[in-house]
Design a protein around this nucleic acid. Structure first.
Lengths: 400, 400
DNA sequence: GCCTTATGTTTCGAGAGAGAACAAAAGATC
DNA sequence: GATCTTTTGTTCTCTCTCGAAACATAAGGC
């Protein structure tokens, strides 16, 4: 009975208060749209100005906050010292997808410090060679960093089932990769000690919707995210947090929409991906599989029958699959990302109608479908955000 | 910029440490299988014996912990004072379902202090009269409480879409109720000031699996729960917590398993409930709809073709629907409750096979189907647990 | 030039846990 | 049966952190 029980969180002590409040102050500054003064921080967080000043001073000393030049707004009273998130802290976000490689560095203010995105066709490509190419891109990006930058972490977005704790990509159907451990392959290209943590592409891309910058909320807090790449990944975001079992989740593309439908390479039948995946839509529309993204939109907008039929079938399949997800998790907002974002305007009417019919709670909260423009390779940004969020969660660790 | 931002948690102060540690100590005692001493509490939580003793003394003074008689284990050293959760704190859990009414009082130790369960057929019953009957049951149960009991909360499990914040049952298809506010109807039967909070039956029943007593974990921490009543409700439990959008979620019964299937009363087609709901199974097996629970089991075990076919169809539909849920939330454990628990042994082989085929991550984590015996009207117990968990989350409020 | 106002800083006190010493109550040992 | 050992529970001092209030600072307004 003297053994420490698993799952019991550790006790609070005085230093816990300090740690919690340092994090609170840092997140408050990050969450704000513009610079805050020490007095603003006190007012927003509820601590006294004395305490706010003490906490801010410690964060400034550690570089997690920067004092910037005051812009001369003519106001009464002593002029405030504007505070913004520290510019020297940044994280590396990588992405390897069937259609592109990307390396991007994002700082604590949410700015892209450096990036390279290389399109290509990596279906069935050799994993070692491809990760090597990504490493070269990474090295290139890192040389462009300003002096004094501090990389706090790194992540790699992959389109498949990932065991993030073990650092293993278990299976990426569209790349044709299995049981791959990317970190050792990337180690030669990144600073020593920087661990590249893999993650599911859709999970990470969803973060870029939930957070428009580290610690700053995006327009939606609760939504189902759909990432249209060659496959279809998904993530459930609740209260701004991606839920699910850490990288195992989000295989929406393989939700069954018709048990009597065609066989899928995953072993099941009638998977969503066979109707609304990028290749499925292009094939049904009579377009080549390497057609540029805008072609399908133009064709359908012009009323081409095959293209319209392809989108109708896609909307129907998305409706069946998403209605199931909405019925289970109870979130009526669907955010379309990736190639589905471009098609959002064409898919929305039929898709929302299908959802209204099949979702039990639709009468009270009508499901809606929205899209976000999103950068190319949103997964890379999400991977960087994940690493930066770890700093926001516990800034005291960075202060020594 | 001096406005308090929404969503920013409040700052920590000294009293926060106290509050947190009081909760930690109380939850530690609740989580333990047997009584703990002050020294045990110190060892498990990590605080010093001095601090543990102070915290325990405060909880004992408030009645949240009880010091019980030492059982004479011959051990060296000064004998410890065994601590158990306070017996005088209890919560009321109610349930109204198509097949039963239930009222139950559960104390902080997880014991059923008093209960009444009344079977019946309440499909299409008048909501006011039915809730009135439940109120009479409740009044009866409350008179049986030992003197000095303190009811800390009350909950009502309902088989439908509930807005817990607003306290409204929006729609319960199998009861035929809509837009019902149960709290005022029950107010005459409960002590003044006790708010009866409605909740989704499956969400609440899932709690009884995640927690075998207030604060004490059950055998599974991450699972998909299926509650087989006349309809089929569901809940997703992650890390011991029911996730979802507070009562909107869990309508697994209306996940579409065959878009070309028969029309459902909900407006969609091919809903899971039409294949694996209680009535669907009985009808397909050629049994009357009011057949006692064991009949179908006996018939199928005896090899009756209609019964076996009914269960095959049910397992197939459950496989399609649950594979979708597993693919989205990434949890490979399915717990069957309600009438599905009795059928678990008959459903499991086919169901696990369907899941293995349709779940993308099955090769690494094979989905498994388990059942829990569960009390009748598990939702009532779950409703009481929810109220008791609120005390565990913040015992300081109870201490004034 | 003085007043007003808002920001930032200093000082003191209170609450809470850590650590160590102390007191208490049993079994173990001779 | 007296003493030692062991474990539990208590008391005391110290440190850490925040709150409160007074003070200092730097601007605009009159």
């Amino acid at each position: 009975m003297t053994q420490r029980l698993a799952g019991v969180p550790s006790s609070a002590r005085q230093s816990t208060v300090r740690t919690a409040n340092l994090g609170l102050v840092l997140r408050t500054v990050c969450a704000a749209a513009g610079p805050l003064s020490r007095a603003d921080v006190a007012a927003v967080t509820g601590v006294t100005r004395a305490t706010a000043a003490r906490l801010v001073d410690e964060l400034v000393a550690g570089g997690l906050l920067d004092e910037v030049e005051r812009e001369l707004l003519p106001r009464r009273g002593r002029p405030a010292t504007p505070l913004v998130p520290g510019a020297r802290f940044a994280a590396l976000g990588l992405q390897a997808d069937a259609g592109l490689l990307a390396a991007r560095v994002v700082d604590l203010r949410g700015r892209v410090v450096a990036e390279r995105v290389e399109p290509g066709d990596f279906r069935g490509a050799d994993p070692v060679a491809t990760i090597g190419a990504l490493g070269a891109l990474t090295a290139d990006v890192l040389t462009g960093l300003p002096a004094g930058s501090c990389l706090v972490g790194a992540g790699l977005a992959l389109p498949g089932v990932v065991d993030a704790d073990a650092g293993v990509l278990l299976r990426a159907p569209n790349l044709g990769w299995s049981d791959l451990r990317p970190a050792p392959l990337l180690a030669p290209f990144v600073p020593a000690g920087l661990d590249v943590v893999p993650g599911n592409e859709a999970d990470l891309a969803a973060r870029t919707v939930a957070e428009e910058a580290p610690g700053r909320s995006g327009p939606y807090r609760d939504f189902i995210y759909l990432s249209g790449q060659i496959g279809i990944g998904g993530a459930v975001v609740l209260g701004g947090r991606v839920t699910g079992s850490s990288g195992w989740a989000g295989e929406v593309g393989h939700v069954c929409v018709d048990p009597d439908g065609p066989a899928c390479s995953c072993g099941s039948t009638g998977c969503l991906e066979l109707y609304a995946g990028r290749h499925a839509l292009l094939r049904a529309a009579g377009l080549p599989l390497d057609a540029p993204p805008g072609d399908l939109v133009r064709l359908a907008a012009a009323g081409d029958p095959a293209a319209v039929a392809a989108l109708d079938a896609g909307a129907w399949a998305l409706g069946v699959a998403l209605a199931g997800v909405v019925n289970v998790v109870g979130i009526p907002t669907v955010v379309l990302g990736g190639h589905l974002a471009e098609l959002a305007d064409l898919l929305r009417p039929a898709l929302e109608e299908h959802l209204a019919r099949r979702v039990l709670s639709a009468r009270w909260r009508r499901p809606r479908v929205v899209s976000v423009p999103g950068p190319p390779a949103a997964g890379a940004s999400g991977a960087a955000l994940r690493a930066l969020d770890a700093v926001l969660a516990d800034p005291a660790r960075r202060l020594g």
